[in-house]
Design a protein around this nucleic acid. Structure first.
Length: 736
DNA sequence: GTGGGGAGTTTTTTT
DNA sequence: AACTCCCCAC
């Protein structure tokens, strides 16, 4: 590797961070300032110049995607295989520690990971058993409470409960803690907390890892929560360095426990730390950066940072005031079509929005205009019902005591084991302190179940035992295939009516493919006396953990050139030449809930807007609607305060030009600003509707006043401009 | 065990 | 408006 060439390609600030001496560092990396590049090059520098081995380094990210990308870029840059280097998410690294040191962590060897869905089920079950009133203590809130406490590093015994509600919650937490321990279940927050406690309470282990990791590098540091920060501080040994890379202005996850304070106090906690600011932006035009800088300057308590570019200032930011969300969608889609007509690609365009509900209107319009699009977000592959059913069978094969898995498939597909039987099993398990599996076996052999129930439960037990035995010597994907067929899960979902069943079967097939391609990267632990079996089960266990920790993409990657649609949160870290931010209205963005929650939340919304703006490379559009249907009701909306926080000289109000619009088939219904519904419905008109007039040509309805046939319409005609016409007299034809 | 009907909910998302 | 959850009837 030519280190000199790499270093020369960096700017001064980047170079300072990459080639820094071995001390703690805080790298404040503005949007588009080459953050990942610095991280990757720093590691390369440590390996090539400072003489470290990959074994000495630990790189932590938040998402699996980011971890994969980092490893990939490093391997490409160095031309090395970096399997010995720890690169992963807080959760995957914690998981690794716990699997390796399960005894010291006081966990059963085959502990299972609970995803949030399973966690909620466990909590609901538990509350039923405890007889807790779920009106006063909603299970979702209990889950929120428990995770929140764990994220703060607090065990049930340490909860500071004030008031009846919190005391109740704390009791649920304590019972939940006990049940998870008993069943060998570990939720997401528990992975981190347990790993932290493992290191804290096992000095030799801590020393070992502190000595090993000479350098710890963290990405997206502004998103760390209390627990993650404690984890980092513990793992950084007396002779190690921590490099935290992040951007306080892009901290947008406070609502789920991220502590922006962590980045703000970093240099106090690590007193020798140097701060490097990366402010030169390689992504956006000067105009876009000026707007971003101006917006974020309205926040308080910033560490301070100003983005700049030596590139062109580019086009102004366009602001469009739509009549309603349909008009907004049409405006956006029109411009995208124009972009494509001018030779651009659809994938260069991104539509960003605050909440998922906004995607529907946009989708409908794209669909109608036959513009291919891709939506990010939504249900992920390993979270789908049919996939979770399949995984539950596999989990039972690995660990018979896994109660959530047992409950999920005991009667899926239906095999005549109803609530009554299940309740008996639960009662027995509870009274004897057994797992459901044990309870089932003992009740069968003790003759405590009668008739059909006994037969069915026995058959279920035998099924699992047989599958376990038969699948053991098989390759992983054949194990899964066997399970899908012999449990009749495939048939069960195949006979579900409608497209749903079809899709589920497809997904199950997809699961087999995914397993076939799965490379567990296992250290080969096969013993001489041919215990291939052990190896086969270990592979399955790895696969199951990975499926839970990385729930997969929302949808299979499509090669088609498509418009990119996602929430502002999802867009963080991405960039697009052409960006639309839709629904920039008070109440929606900033969201009403954030406005009500106070200044901190509002500042977070502003950071979210900052994130959105800085996604744009060349051209940015902000759109807002005067009227928007939310929860089935029309609301009048004011433009967002964020728009007025942008310097006016950077903005350009988009004049309505109906001529750029193509006709769309909005359902002919009018319920807007007093326009008479019945009258208008007859002719199929509504505000925002495009119409044609024999004399004035094509135009678009801007306003409606009055009632019945006397309704006055303000129409902006392409050729002759704005005109007031009376509905009853004007020969208007809707353009659909 | 399924399906219909009524009531209640409704930001943002990863692990 | 659209979705989930829960209860009740078949």
């Amino acid at each position: 590797m030519d280190v000199t060439a790499i270093i020369e390609s960096l700017n001064a600030a980047q170079r300072e961070a990459v080639c820094a001496d071995e001390h703690d560092q805080l790298v404040l990396a503005g949007a588009g300032s080459g953050k990942t590049r610095v991280l990757v090059h720093r590691i390369a520098w440590l390996l090539a110049t400072a003489g470290h081995s990959p074994h000495d380094l630990l790189a932590v990210t938040f998402t699996n995607k980011a971890a994969r990308e980092m490893r990939l870029r490093l391997e490409a840059l160095l031309g090395l295989n970096l399997r010995s280097m720890w690169v992963g998410t807080f959760h995957s690294l914690s998981h690794r520690l716990l699997r390796t040191h399960w005894k010291d962590a006081q966990l059963p060897q085959h502990f299972q990971i609970l995803d949030s869905d399973d966690q909620l089920r466990v909590i609901k079950r538990l509350m039923k058993d405890l007889g807790v009133d779920d009106d006063r203590f909603p299970p979702k809130q209990a889950q929120w409470f428990i995770n929140g406490q764990k994220d703060e590093g607090r065990r049930a015994a340490h909860v500071l409960a004030r008031g009846e509600f919190e005391r109740g919650m704390a009791e649920i937490y304590a019972a939940y803690e006990e049940r998870c321990q008993q069943q060998g279940l570990v939720d997401f927050a528990e992975l981190l907390l347990r790993a932290l406690e493992l290191l804290r309470d096992t000095p030799l282990l801590l020393q070992h890892y502190q000595n090993r990791f000479k350098h710890i590098l963290v990405d997206e540091f502004q998103d760390t929560n209390t627990l993650q920060y404690a984890w980092l501080r513990l793992l950084r040994g007396p002779n190690s360095c921590l490099m935290a890379v992040g951007d306080d202005d892009q901290s947008i996850y406070g609502w789920r426990g991220a502590k922006i304070e962590n980045i703000q106090r970093f240099t106090e906690d690590f007193s020798g730390a140097k701060t490097v600011r990366l402010e030169q932006n390689y992504r956006s035009t000067g105009t876009i950066l000026d707007a971003a800088n101006a917006l974020i300057s309205h926040n308080t308590g910033r560490l301070g940072k100003e983005l700049w570019t030596d590139g062109a200032s580019g086009e102004p930011i366009s602001v469009y005031a739509a009549f309603n969300e349909q008009d907004e969608a049409r405006f956006i889609v029109d411009l995208i079509q124009q972009h494509v007509q001018d030779g651009g690609l659809r994938r260069e365009c991104a539509i960003l929005y605050r909440s998922n509900a906004q995607s529907r209107t946009l989708e409908e319009t794209l669909l109608r205009q036959q513009v291919p699009y891709r939506i990010y977000g939504g249900q992920r592959f390993y979270e789908r019902l049919e996939i979770k059913n399949a995984l539950a069978y596999l989990r039972l094969m690995v660990n018979r005591d896994d109660a959530p898995a047992f409950e999920r498939v005991i009667n899926t597909p239906t095999r005549g084991i109803g609530t009554t039987t299940l309740e008996k099993l639960r009662a027995r398990a509870r009274d004897e302190g057994q797992s459901l599996w044990q309870a089932a076996i003992e009740m069968i052999s003790g003759g405590l179940l009668k008739g059909r129930a006994a037969t069915s439960v026995q058959a279920f037990i035998q099924l699992i035992e047989r599958l376990d035995e038969q699948s053991l010597p098989l390759p992983l994907h054949e194990q899964v295939e066997l399970v899908l067929n012999d449990t009749q899960l495939m048939d069960f979902h195949a006979q579900e009516k409608g497209e749903k069943g079809q899709a589920r079967v497809e997904n199950l097939k997809e699961l087999i493919t995914a397993v076939r391609q799965y490379d567990p990267a296992l250290p080969v632990t096969m013993s001489d006396d041919g215990e291939i079996n052990l190896e086969g089960r270990a592979a399955l266990e790895h696969f199951l953990a990975e499926a839970t920790l990385d729930a997969g993409d929302t949808q299979a990657e499509e090669d088609q050139d498509a418009v990119q649609m996602m929430t502002l949160h999802t867009a963080k870290g991405l960039e697009f030449p052409l960006v639309f931010i839709a629904g920039v209205e008070e109440g929606l963005f900033p969201h009403q809930m954030s406005i009500e929650e106070g200044a901190d939340r509002l500042e977070e919304e502003r950071r979210l807007c900052y994130v959105g703006i800085t996604r744009a490379m060349k051209k940015l559009y902000l759109t807002h609607a005067e009227s928007r249907r939310i929860y089935g009701r029309d609301n009048l909306c004011r433009p967002s305060r964020f728009i007025s926080e942008l310097p006016e000289n950077l903005l350009q109000e988009v004049r309505l030009r109906a001529s750029i619009s193509r006709p769309v088939s909005a359902r002919p219904q009018v319920r807007h600003q007093g326009m008479a519904q019945s009258q208008a419905e007859e002719v199929g008109l509504r505000v925002g509707q495009q119409v044609s007039h024999p004399k004035f040509g094509a135009g678009i309805i801007l306003h409606a006043e009055g009632d019945g046939p006397k309704t006055r319409l303000l129409i902006n005609f392409d050729e002759v401009g704005e005109k007031w016409l009376v509905l009853g007299f004007a020969p208007l034809t809707p353009l659909d």
